[in-house]
Protein backbone atom coordinates (compact mmCIF):
# COMPACT_ATOMS: atom_id res chain seq x y z
CA UNK A 1 0.00 0.00 0.00
CA UNK A 2 1.34 3.42 -0.90
CA UNK A 3 1.92 6.12 1.74
CA UNK A 4 -0.82 8.22 0.11
CA UNK A 5 -3.38 5.46 0.63
CA UNK A 6 -2.36 5.10 4.28
CA UNK A 7 -2.59 8.87 4.67
CA UNK A 8 -6.17 8.87 3.35
CA UNK A 9 -7.13 6.08 5.75
CA UNK A 10 -5.41 7.86 8.61
CA UNK A 11 -7.23 11.13 7.91
CA UNK A 12 -10.61 9.43 7.72
CA UNK A 13 -9.94 7.59 10.94
CA UNK A 14 -9.10 10.83 12.74
CA UNK A 15 -12.23 12.43 11.32
CA UNK A 16 -14.41 9.53 12.57
CA UNK A 17 -12.85 9.73 16.03
CA UNK A 18 -13.36 13.49 16.08
CA UNK A 19 -17.01 13.16 15.10
CA UNK A 20 -17.71 10.56 17.79
CA UNK A 21 -16.07 12.65 20.46
CA UNK A 22 -17.30 16.05 19.24
CA UNK A 23 -20.93 15.11 18.65
CA UNK A 24 -21.14 13.11 21.88
CA UNK A 25 -19.61 15.95 23.88
CA UNK A 26 -21.86 18.57 22.28
CA UNK A 27 -24.95 16.51 23.03
CA UNK A 28 -23.88 16.06 26.63
CA UNK A 29 -23.29 19.77 27.10
CA UNK A 30 -26.73 20.51 25.63
CA UNK A 31 -28.45 17.84 27.74
CA UNK A 32 -26.81 18.93 30.98
CA UNK A 33 -27.73 22.55 30.26
CA UNK A 34 -31.35 21.56 29.69
CA UNK A 35 -31.58 19.61 32.94
CA UNK A 36 -29.65 22.30 34.82
CA UNK A 37 -32.03 25.08 33.82
CA UNK A 38 -34.97 23.09 35.16
CA UNK A 39 -33.08 22.12 38.32
CA UNK A 40 -32.01 25.73 38.95
CA UNK A 41 -35.67 26.79 38.79
CA UNK A 42 -36.60 24.09 41.30
CA UNK A 43 -33.72 25.04 43.59
CA UNK A 44 -34.91 28.63 43.64
CA UNK A 45 -37.94 27.40 45.58
CA UNK A 46 -36.60 24.21 47.19
CA UNK A 47 -32.81 24.13 47.57
CA UNK A 48 -33.07 21.00 49.71
CA UNK A 49 -33.89 18.95 46.59
CA UNK A 50 -30.42 19.46 45.10
CA UNK A 51 -29.19 16.01 46.19
CA UNK A 52 -32.11 14.22 44.57
CA UNK A 53 -31.68 16.14 41.32
CA UNK A 54 -27.92 15.82 41.01
CA UNK A 55 -27.93 12.41 39.31
CA UNK A 56 -30.57 13.62 36.85
CA UNK A 57 -28.39 16.60 35.92
CA UNK A 58 -25.27 14.45 35.53
CA UNK A 59 -26.86 11.63 33.49
CA UNK A 60 -26.66 13.34 30.07
CA UNK A 61 -22.94 13.77 30.65
CA UNK A 62 -22.12 10.10 30.09
CA UNK A 63 -22.44 10.37 26.30
CA UNK A 64 -19.47 12.72 26.20
CA UNK A 65 -17.37 10.08 27.93
CA UNK A 66 -18.63 7.35 25.59
CA UNK A 67 -17.58 9.49 22.64
CA UNK A 68 -14.17 9.95 24.19
CA UNK A 69 -13.82 6.17 24.73
CA UNK A 70 -14.80 5.52 21.10
CA UNK A 71 -12.29 8.07 19.81
CA UNK A 72 -9.43 6.64 21.88
CA UNK A 73 -10.34 3.08 20.90
CA UNK A 74 -10.35 3.96 17.21
CA UNK A 75 -6.89 5.43 17.45
CA UNK A 76 -5.32 2.72 19.62
CA UNK A 77 -6.75 -0.14 17.54
CA UNK A 78 -5.44 1.36 14.32
CA UNK A 79 -2.06 2.22 15.75
CA UNK A 80 -2.58 5.97 15.57
CA UNK A 81 -1.83 6.07 19.28
CA UNK A 82 0.81 3.83 20.85
CA UNK A 83 1.11 1.51 17.89
CA UNK A 84 4.38 0.36 16.32
CA UNK A 85 2.78 0.33 12.87
CA UNK A 86 -0.27 1.86 11.25
CA UNK A 87 -2.91 -0.69 10.31
CA UNK A 88 -5.18 1.44 8.17
CA UNK A 89 -6.45 1.06 4.63
CA UNK A 90 -8.64 3.63 2.86
CA UNK A 91 -11.55 1.19 3.32
CA UNK A 92 -10.95 0.98 7.07
CA UNK A 93 -10.75 4.75 7.18
CA UNK A 94 -14.07 5.19 5.39
CA UNK A 95 -15.68 2.64 7.71
CA UNK A 96 -14.28 4.40 10.77
CA UNK A 97 -15.48 7.76 9.49
CA UNK A 98 -19.06 6.54 9.22
CA UNK A 99 -18.89 4.57 12.47
CA UNK A 100 -17.71 7.73 14.20
CA UNK A 101 -20.46 9.79 12.54
CA UNK A 102 -23.22 7.30 13.36
CA UNK A 103 -22.14 6.73 16.93
CA UNK A 104 -21.62 10.48 17.42
CA UNK A 105 -25.15 11.20 16.19
CA UNK A 106 -26.62 8.48 18.41
CA UNK A 107 -24.74 9.89 21.40
CA UNK A 108 -25.65 13.48 20.62
CA UNK A 109 -29.38 12.88 20.12
CA UNK A 110 -29.60 10.57 23.13
CA UNK A 111 -27.83 13.14 25.33
CA UNK A 112 -30.12 15.95 24.19
CA UNK A 113 -33.24 13.88 24.70
CA UNK A 114 -31.93 12.56 27.99
CA UNK A 115 -31.59 16.17 29.12
CA UNK A 116 -35.28 16.71 28.33
CA UNK A 117 -36.25 13.48 30.10
CA UNK A 118 -34.17 14.57 33.08
CA UNK A 119 -35.90 17.96 33.06
CA UNK A 120 -39.27 16.19 33.11
CA UNK A 121 -38.04 13.97 35.95
CA UNK A 122 -36.82 17.03 37.85
CA UNK A 123 -40.28 18.59 37.51
CA UNK A 124 -41.76 15.37 38.88
CA UNK A 125 -39.38 15.46 41.86
CA UNK A 126 -40.36 19.09 42.48
CA UNK A 127 -44.03 18.16 42.61
CA UNK A 128 -43.57 14.83 44.41
CA UNK A 129 -40.15 14.51 46.06
CA UNK A 130 -41.00 10.96 47.16
CA UNK A 131 -41.06 9.90 43.47
CA UNK A 132 -37.34 10.62 43.00
CA UNK A 133 -36.48 6.90 42.71
CA UNK A 134 -38.93 6.33 39.89
CA UNK A 135 -38.24 9.66 38.18
CA UNK A 136 -34.66 8.62 37.50
CA UNK A 137 -35.90 5.69 35.39
CA UNK A 138 -37.08 7.92 32.55
CA UNK A 139 -33.68 9.36 31.63
CA UNK A 140 -32.09 6.01 32.47
CA UNK A 141 -34.10 4.35 29.69
CA UNK A 142 -32.73 6.89 27.22
CA UNK A 143 -29.24 5.99 28.41
CA UNK A 144 -29.82 2.43 27.16
CA UNK A 145 -29.44 3.50 23.57
CA UNK A 146 -26.26 5.43 24.22
CA UNK A 147 -24.83 2.27 25.78
CA UNK A 148 -26.02 0.19 22.79
CA UNK A 149 -24.31 2.69 20.45
CA UNK A 150 -21.10 2.41 22.46
CA UNK A 151 -21.17 -1.40 22.44
CA UNK A 152 -21.94 -1.59 18.72
CA UNK A 153 -19.10 0.82 17.99
CA UNK A 154 -16.63 -1.19 20.08
CA UNK A 155 -17.66 -4.35 18.22
CA UNK A 156 -17.26 -2.68 14.81
CA UNK A 157 -13.84 -1.30 15.71
CA UNK A 158 -12.72 -4.70 17.01
CA UNK A 159 -13.94 -6.59 13.94
CA UNK A 160 -12.48 -4.06 11.52
CA UNK A 161 -9.05 -4.31 13.08
CA UNK A 162 -8.97 -8.01 13.93
CA UNK A 163 -5.94 -10.04 12.92
CA UNK A 164 -7.47 -12.27 10.23
CA UNK A 165 -8.78 -9.37 8.17
CA UNK A 166 -5.57 -7.44 8.39
CA UNK A 167 -3.49 -10.51 7.54
CA UNK A 168 -5.56 -10.99 4.38
CA UNK A 169 -4.65 -7.55 3.08
CA UNK A 170 -1.09 -7.90 4.23
CA UNK A 171 -1.13 -5.39 7.11
CA UNK A 172 -0.48 -7.79 9.95
Amino acid sequence: MTPDMIEIGRGLCYAGAGLAFGLGGSGSAWGIATASHQAAGVMREKPELFGRMLVMIALPGTQGFYGFIIAVLMMTQTGLIGGAELRITPGTGIAFFFIGLASGLALMVSAMKQGEASAAGISLIARRPEAAGRAILFPAFVETYAVVALLATILFITFLTQGVALEYIGLS
Binding site: Q38, A40, M43, I122, S123, L124, R127
Partner: peptide
Protein backbone atom coordinates in the same frame (compact mmCIF):
# COMPACT_ATOMS: atom_id res chain seq x y z
CA UNK B 1 -38.31 28.16 29.61
CA UNK B 2 -36.59 25.53 31.78
CA UNK B 3 -35.79 27.78 34.72
CA UNK B 4 -39.29 29.17 35.13
CA UNK B 5 -40.87 25.74 34.59
CA UNK B 6 -38.66 24.24 37.31
CA UNK B 7 -39.86 26.95 39.66
CA UNK B 8 -43.54 26.53 38.87
CA UNK B 9 -43.26 22.75 39.27
CA UNK B 10 -42.47 23.37 42.94
CA UNK B 11 -45.35 25.82 43.33
CA UNK B 12 -47.77 23.37 41.70
CA UNK B 13 -47.07 20.97 44.53
Amino acid sequence: WGFVCGGIAVLEE
